[in-house]
C-alpha cells in the first residue's frame, strides 16, 4: 500500500535519483543546445533575415517601379503634348500655306486680268491707229479718185458715201 501512496519511492529519499535526474537533464540540455536548438535557431534566424531582406528588396523594387511609372507617365504626357503641338503647327502652317496659295492665285488672276485688259486696250489702240491710217489713205485715195474723176456734186457725195460704206464694212 505504501508503494501506492508514494509511487515507486518506498521509504527514504533516493538521493541517487535526484542526482541522476539533475545530471541527465543538464547534460540533455547542453547536448540539445549544441546539436539541435543551436542549429535550428540559427536557421530560423537566417530565414527571418532572408525574409526581411526579401521584403526590403521587394519594397525597393516597388519604389523603383513606381518611379519608373511616374517618369513614364510624365514622358507620355510630354510626348502627347508635343504631338498636339506638332499637329497644331502643321494645321496652322497648312492654313497659312493655303491662304498664301489663294492669295497668290488671286493676285495672279488679277494680274492676268490686268494684262488682258491692257492687251485689249493696246489692241484697240492699235486698231484705232490702223483705222485712222486706213481712213487717211482712204481719204487720200478718195481725194485722188475725186480729183481723177470729175464728178458732179451729187455723184461725188454718193461716191463718198459708198466708199465710206465700203470702208465701214471692210473693217
Amino acid at each position: 500500500m505504501q508503494s501506492l501512496m508514494l509511487g515507486a519511492a518506498t521509504g527514504g529519499v533516493n538521493g541517487g535519483d535526484i542526482l541522476f535526474q539533475l545530471l541527465a537533464f543538464i547534460i540533455l540540455m547542453l547536448l540539445l543546445r549544441k546539436y539541435a536548438w543551436g542549429p535550428l535557431m540559427g536557421i530560423m534566424k537566417e530565414r527571418q533575415n532572408f525574409i526581411t531582406n526579401e521584403i526590403e528588396a521587394a519594397e525597393a523594387s516597388r519604389k523603383e517601379a513606381e518611379e519608373h511609372l511616374a517618369t513614364q507617365i510624365q514622358e507620355l504626357k510630354q510626348a502627347r503634348e508635343e504631338a498636339r503641338a506638332i499637329i497644331e503647327n502643321a494645321k496652322k502652317q497648312g492654313e497659312a500655306q493655303g491662304e498664301a496659295i489663294i492669295q497668290a492665285s488671286r493676285e495672279e488672276a488679277e494680274r492676268v486680268k490686268e494684262s488682258a485688259l491692257a492687251d485689249i486696250a493696246s489692241e484697240r489702240e492699235k486698231a484705232v491707229a490702223t483705222l485712222r491710217k486706213e481712213v487717211a489713205s482712204l481719204s487720200v485715195m478718195i481725194a485722188s479718185k475725186v480729183i481723177a474723176k470729175e464728178l458732179d456734186e451729187r455723184s461725188q457725195e454718193k461716191l463718198i458715201q459708198d466708199y465710206l460704206q465700203e470702208a465701214g464694212e471692210a473693217r
Binding site: 515507486a8 538521493g15 541517487g16 535519483d17 541522476f20 541527465a24 540539445l32
Partner: peptide, 20 residues
C-alpha cells in the same frame, strides 16, 4: 551511499535519449 531506483535511472536515460 546513495539510493538509486534503477527503474528511474533507466527511464530517465530512455527519455533523454528519445528527446535527444
Amino acid at each position: 551511499g546513495l539510493q538509486f531506483n534503477l527503474s528511474n535511472v533507466l527511464m530517465i536515460t530512455v527519455s533523454s535519449l528519445i528527446v535527444f
